[in-house]
Structures are given as C-alpha cells and as structure tokens.
Design a protein around this nucleic acid. Structure first.
Lengths: 105, 105
DNA sequence: GTTAATACCTTGTAATACAAGATAAAGGAC
DNA sequence: GTCCTTTATCTTGTATTACAAGGTATTAAC
C-alpha cells in the first residue's frame, strides 16, 4: 500500500484496529467510529469497505443470530490483517510526523 | 469540506501551510514535500491540485522568469486560503485525536 | 398485522491520486 | 547551430473510493 492510498485509507486502518480489540459487526462498528469522534461514516462507506477487506483477506466473518433484526456478521482479523494493522500504524506515525512538521515546523 | 474529504485531502492542507510560509512554485513544492517526509508526490498529483485550489480561490499565482527552464508559477494564499488552512488545522487536530484514540486507546 | 428498531447490502456518482507522457525554455558541450 | 540535460509546467486516462440514497430482512412490541 502506497503512502497515497494511506491518505485515502486512514479509516481502513482504524477499522482494523477496532476489530483487533474484539470481533464486531458492521452496524456496531459504525456506532463505535462515531464514539471515537469520526463524523459521519455511513453504512454506505462501512459495508463496502468490510467486503473489500474480506476480499483482501484481512478479515474473516461469521454470522451470528441477533436479538432483534437479521443475523450479525461478526468480523475478526486474519494474520494478514494483523500484519497490515502493524504496517498501518507505522505509516500513520510517519504521516503524523510529516504533517505536524509542515503545520507546526 | 466534510471529514471524509479531509481524509482524502490531507495533502491539500499541507500545501496550503507550505504556501503560507512563502510563495512557492509547483516544482519546488514537490521537492519540499519530499523533504518533509512525504513519499512520492508526483507532479501528476501536485499540478492538478494547485489548479484546483486556484479554481476554488484558495491561492493566486503569478509567473516569474526562471534561471533555467520555463516560467515559474508562484502561488500564494488568498484570504479564503488562509481561512481554509485554519479550518484544516482544526480538522487535522480532531482527526489525529480520533485515530490515536482508536490506535492507542 | 403494523410499526419500529436492528442489521445488512447495492447502485450510482463525484472526487482524486497517480502514472505516463507531452511541452517548453535555458545553458552548456561539441 | 544543434544536441543534451535540467528545470518547469500541464494533460490525459485509469483505478480507487467515500458516500448518498434506497432496498431488503428479521425480530419484538403493541
């Protein structure tokens, strides 16, 4: 993943980090992102992203019954996903340094 | 500008910050970004971006002779650009907090 | 059986990072 | 004087992707 894709892909990394904590389903993830202070990540963003990440074999999913509503698709990280998260954290750190260097010199 | 566009638009803010320091032309800007640790911002990224920012009236430009090569197009911030930079810095700060909250809890 | 809440997915659009390549001007080598 | 290199800008085309908008399914409560 290039540095550019990172600029576009910050959410990806954050989602990997949240999933690593504990397995989680899309709807819950959306709520959690809002808690963490991210504005407006709609389901139109999150579901396609999760599907993409599963295609890339960063996450796996299992269906579990819900108390109310359709089955929940719980996601957890694969080893590849854990590696990707590590790499993301390095890139994020570097990006943070660069941006702060520019902004605050 | 939404939070999403920000994710994609971090470079925009950085470029505004660099231009605010002193007027600068595209080619020089590309070099400077590399100095600051950004990988690989090619001219195919930077020139369209500068043109876009001028269209949005965030920057103005004036041509000046170069010692070698075609005329340099020096960019500087408009008042609108300065405001945008301020807003970007606030959004960046918020984003940083959110991401770090997720990553390092 | 209707409503509300929960949960997932799809389609279409606009933005945009970037590679690749075109163009232009100046200076130096020969 | 013509060729090469360096400096400098711009354009075209492609792939990615955030998101709005809307659709579908399941359960509980009434």
């Amino acid at each position: 993943m290039s540095s550019t894709q990172m600029l576009k892909g910050i959410i990806d990394g954050c989602i990997l980090a949240i999933i690593q904590e504990k397995e989680i389903y899309g709807y819950e993830l959306a709520e959690k992102l809002e808690q963490y202070g991210f504005d407006s990540f709609s389901e139109g963003t999150i579901y396609p992203l999760l599907i993409r990440m599963q295609k890339e074999e960063l996450v796996t999913s299992t269906l579990k019954k819900s108390t109310a509503g359709p089955k929940r698709k719980y996601y957890s990280l694969t080893q590849k996903g854990k590696n990707e998260l590590q790499q993301f954290m390095v890139r994020w750190d570097k990006l943070q340094n660069s941006v702060n260097h520019v902004l605050y010199k």
